[in-house]
Nucleic acid binder design. Structure first.
Length: 369
RNA sequence: CCGCGCUUAGCUCAGCCUGGCAGAGCAGCCGACUGUAGAUCGGCUUGUCCCCCGUUCAAAUCGGGGAGUGCGGACCA
């Protein structure tokens, strides 16, 4: 696979790359070893001891195990398949300490149970996206965030970072309050240090993470580490209009929602005729359903009464969007089909938990008792 | 350790001074209109007034005790 193709895969369906040049550099002919066309030469490089520029780039994403996983998580996890196919090393951090530091969104005693649930859910999503979960390195925050070197770096960073700076950095991620806890202020520094500790070349996350990773790019070099290349996923619109809110059930589909609920939520979704802006239903298709269909080489089929034009088949999201914008495709017909495909997409993950009800029960005892 | 504030619907809060049927906005739910949703219109629901004890014919309201939460003070060897 050539550099241009790798770049296309890595950057497609993202909101922003910081910076494109740096990413090209990273993916480019590092060492000009094009002749050995297989990307897996890193095994030799590592064996030979010199972890130099022939290393395969590592990309990482962190998930704080707080509430139940939803469709927005799934879209970012779907991208991991692209990264793997582009030959990147992929690390998934289950950021348990973050989940507690952010206003104690997860109670400390539940961190392990929720981490186990996240890991299982993520594994299921990676698999559903057509990639091999075994190829991903999972790590839990506590496994390295308590190391003495890490702690020392954290304290040294705390010494030269202002409260105003970390508040600004975390404003889109950390729960805001008039009386913020120290944990939420430490959070951006912790996350910055994660990049370094995990040896990640690329930090990947939703666009809401931008503030934090911009801080990382600023502060890591001052402490002897490389600034990460950043890759941001677009934030999905809420189904009830406006921004998606994880705490508003109607604004999102959870990966374990039953079929009936998926249909109800999509049916109730904000979806103005011909309008793309803020249209969650279309976004679900663009960022999740179509990439997975592409992977399987399957089309998107809409069954429609003859009265409204009969069945239609779309081979690409762009074609569907064009019809929708032209108002050749009515929201009602779109919704019915979308709900079925979304339900299909999510069903393998849901099935996993049907086999392991204990994971959800232990992670969210108050909801599943 | 000391002082002060706050706690009322899912959320933000009013009501407390001066005791008399527990309220508003937003959210939510249901209809109408749209071949979806939204917008709009019409309608509706929502309570351990933080807890306990007391005063009173009557307590969200007054008195005492307590809890939770937040703020401030004290200290500068």
């Amino acid at each position: 696979m050539d550099t241009a193709e790798r770049y296309r895969l890595v950057a497609r369906n993202t909101a922003e790359v910081v910076t494109e040049a740096e990413l090209r550099d990273l993916l480019g002919d590092d060492g000009d070893s094009d002749d050995g066309e297989n990307v897996d030469v890193d095994a030799e490089a590592k064996a030979s001891g010199n972890g130099d520029e022939t290393d395969v780039p590592t990309i990482y994403i962190g998930y704080a195990p707080t509430g139940e996983m939803h469709i927005a998580h799934f879209t970012t996890i779907r991208k991991l398949a692209d990264f793997l196919h582009a030959g990147l090393d992929v690390t998934v951090l289950v950021a348990d300490l973050h989940a507690h530091l952010d206003d104690e969104k997860s109670p400390f005693p539940l961190l392990d149970a929720r981490s186990a649930y996240y890991r299982e859910a993520i594994t299921g999503m990676v698999k559903a996206a057509g990639a091999d979960p075994e190829a991903i390195e999972f790590i839990q925050g506590r496994e390295f965030e308590l190391d003495s070197d890490y702690s020392l770096d954290l304290l040294r960073m705390a010494a030269d970072t202002t409260v105003a700076r970390v508040r600004r950095a975390g404003s889109e991620v950390v729960r805001q309050s008039e009386t913020p806890n120290l944990g939420g202020l430490i959070y951006p520094l912790l996350q910055s240090l994660d990049v370094a500790a995990l040896d990640a070349d690329i930090a990947y996350g939703g666009l809401d993470q931008r503030g934090i990773y911009m801080l990382s790019r600023e502060v890591l070099p001052e402490h002897g580490y490389d600034a990460p290349v950043c890759l941001f996923a677009p934030l999905l619109s809420g189904l009830s209009g406006g921004k998606m809110s994880a705490s508003d059930e109607a604004s999102k589909v959870n990966v374990t929602d039953p079929t009936e609920e998926v249909h109800e939520k999509i049916g109730a979704a904000y979806c103005p005729r011909g309008e793309i802006e803020g249209n969650g239903v279309l976004e679900y298709l663009q960022y999740l359903v179509f990439p997975i269909l592409d992977e399987r080489d399957e089309p998107f089929v809409i069954e429609r009464p003859e009265q409204y034009g009969g069945d239609v088949t779309y081979g690409s999201y762009d074609a569907l969007e064009a019809d929708f914008v032209a108002e050749e495709l009515h929201p009602q017909d779109l919704k019915t089909a979308a709900a079925a495909y979304i339900d299909d997409t999510v069903s393998p993950v849901r099935a996993r938990f049907a086999d392991r009800p204990d994971l959800l029960r232990e992670a969210y005892p108050e909801r599943y008792d």
